[in-house]
Design a protein around this nucleic acid. Structure first.
Lengths: 259, 259
DNA sequence: ACAAAAGTGTTTAGTTTACACCCATGA
DNA sequence: TCATGGGTGTAAACTAAACACTTTTGT
């Protein structure tokens, strides 16, 4: 055993607590829906490696994790720090473990500078999350320089973050075909048209309005409210809500039937 | 910055190459099918912490990864070392990142002893794999003390390996409903009954024979062979094969249709 | 001739698709 | 009264589910 190995082990054994783990990170693909477009919440990497203004690049909200931090909790922490929201839908969907995914260039130097940790290789666990877009979580509100971007026109991103977003979108597309998770993206009261548009932007295709209604409204967990839209220059739409309890029960039945 | 932090960073920066990364591992849930039961390939943790014989425990084939090793390749390496097989179906399905998943007990001491690395917390990326069971990959053949175990009667396992297996099984169950991956578990020539039994053991329920046949045989990637079973005391079954090329083509069509 | 597993068809119920017009409201 | 988007029904095609007997082989 060479002295380097020995020293490495000694220090790993005796490392100080509560600093970052330089090898493990979490990145969150946070989807939002503004009624028209599917968007992703991105943070701005606002300063260059020498502090000067340089090419503006964006990144996924994410962070190295703390030494003894659980991954799921780390993802929750990041989301909370950025948006102020807690107990939000968050799902681990993939790990990105290419040893070269953080190339040895400006991006890496920037990361080393902001984290205060020497970066070697970083394995990141990716989560996706669905939240409702409103004033409180858009733009500079939280001082984190986070902003919403259409998934169809993404700005330049650091590392492999574009690939992570695209993988997340694929997973989301698969998921919404079987699980009604999209209600996380809608306000508590919504119209049929809103959901349909949401499905259309996620799937990237138009859906037949009559068939969509039929299928949606026969689900036992979609409850009609008496309230209607107001102040629209056309027949006002009825509002509906998602009944989570009902959903969980109906899901249990499905899982029994299975095949 | 305290001296501990400084030293830690210094050493991480200057660590020797080609030893194990003490924080990242890969575990493989390797499913096999012997014609009757769904099985998992487990390695034996054959010696106790002091080298004496003690309670026999099993573990998933897995390993800490090398410092600059890609995760997918590490999974392939582990599978190859254990079975001699390469280019096998392997799919990442989850990350287990609870900081307490490797409890500070005998299991951890055993791991530290065999890896020669001080273990702190280990985040493991889990893969599942499907292989055909035959003489060459069962039992002591490879000197790794690996053996097949029915998923219904698993022996005691170290760490959270039981949970990893169960999560893998759930993912497999979901997956086979949409993708014909189960052909990885069958020999090149198989009978309809073999596939049906395989589906039945994975899903844990009986399926209607006539309906199953109809559905299976209308798939364009299932090709009938002229060959028949021989030496059976009943009407001999016809053999079929899985046409991978055909499958990939038909899949493309489906992906276009989508919804 | 018997045991054992392979192989076969039909009916019914449910689901998916395609498609066009009237309704309620504000301007 | 017009423009706008909300809301509605039906027929045809397809898919899924339930169900029982004949065939081929070895012993």
């Amino acid at each position: 055993m060479c002295i380097g190995t020995f020293l490495y082990r000694f220090v790993v054994m005796n490392r100080p607590e509560s600093i970052f783990n330089p090898q493990l990170s979490v990145d969150c693909v946070i989807f939002g829906f503004d009624g028209k477009h599917l968007k992703v919440l991105l943070a701005e990497r606002c300063e260059g490696i020498d502090g000067s203004a340089e090419q503006k690049k964006f990144k996924l909200p994410g962070d190295l994790i703390h030494l003894k931090e659980d991954l799921d909790l780390a993802a929750g922490r990041i989301l909370h720090e950025l948006t102020g929201l807690s107990s939000i839908f968050l799902k681990q969907f993939s790990v990105f473990g290419d040893p070269e995914r953080i190339p040895d260039n400006d991006d890496r130097k920037w990361l080393e500078k902001t984290s205060g940790v020497k970066i070697d290789r970083v394995v990141t666990t990716a989560y996706y999350s669905l939240i409702k877009i409103d004033k409180s979580n858009t733009d500079q509100e939280t001082g984190n320089h986070a902003s919403w971007h259409k998934i169809t026109t993404l700005p330049p991103l650091i590392f492999d973050h574009k690939k992570i977003i695209m993988t997340g979108l694929e997973v989301l597309r698969k998921e919404i075909r079987f699980e009604p998770i999209c209600f996380e993206l809608l306000p508590a009261k919504f119209t049929v048209r809103q959901i349909q548009t949401l499905y259309e932007v996620i799937l990237g295709q138009e859906l037949d309005n009559r068939n969509f209604r039929k299928k949606l409204l026969k689900a036992p967990y979609i409850k009609q409210l008496t309230e209607k839209q107001q102040g629209v220059a056309h027949k006002p739409a009825l509002f509906y809500r998602f009944d989570r309890k009902q959903y969980l029960e109906s899901r249990r039945d499905i899982l029994f039937y299975n095949f």
